[in-house]
């Protein structure tokens, strides 16, 4: 797993549950804007992850060194999933295939968010992580 993701997990698991929600809100604001060409695809409805109840869109780029660059787009008024997207992009932008493979599918539990988020979010996030791995492997 990437060192950046380890750090974020430490940050979240080290504080009280209510504080975790505030951290998640911070990360929702850190989710970078999509590059224009992906923004257009998102508006056209492409790239959607259907397991998430909130519209979430994902693309994965690879640079010349084989490093992975995930791009995640989230509908407006959906800060919870935007927060998860913000964490994933922050932690995994520029990661290697090995680092991506090591991301746990129960990331929500590792972050200590499973008790404060809805069960359906947990499933959605697992689907997002799963899709990220699959798409990077293509």
């Amino acid at each position: 797993m990437s060192a950046a993701l380890d750090e974020i997990i430490d940050l979240f698991s080290g504080v009280e549950p209510q504080m975790r929600l505030e951290l998640l809100l911070d990360y929702s604001r850190k989710l970078p804007k999509l590059p224009d060409h992906y923004q257009k695809l998102m508006e056209a409805g492409a790239g959607r992850i259907h397991e998430c109840m909130t519209p979430v869109f994902l693309w994965v780029d690879r640079d010349d060194e084989g490093r992975i660059h995930p791009h995640i787009g989230v509908a407006e008024e959906a800060p919870t999933i935007a927060g998860i997207g913000g964490i994933l992009v922050k932690a995994l932008d520029g990661c290697t295939q090995e680092e991506l493979d090591a991301v746990p599918s129960n990331l929500v539990e590792k972050l200590g968010l499973h008790k404060v988020l809805r069960m359906n979010r947990t499933v959605g996030v697992a689907a997002l992580v799963g899709r990220l791995k699959k798409q990077a492997a293509l």
Binding site: L21, L25, S28, T54, E77, A78, P79, T80, L117, R118
Partner: peptide
């Protein structure tokens, strides 16, 4: 709301949040 964080992003100024769960 359905989204547990939505109220925190901004709300009707005098409003309080009541969560369904």
């Amino acid at each position: 709301d359905e989204d547990v964080l939505l109220y925190d992003t901004g709300h009707v100024p005098e409003s309080v949040k009541i969560d369904w769960i």
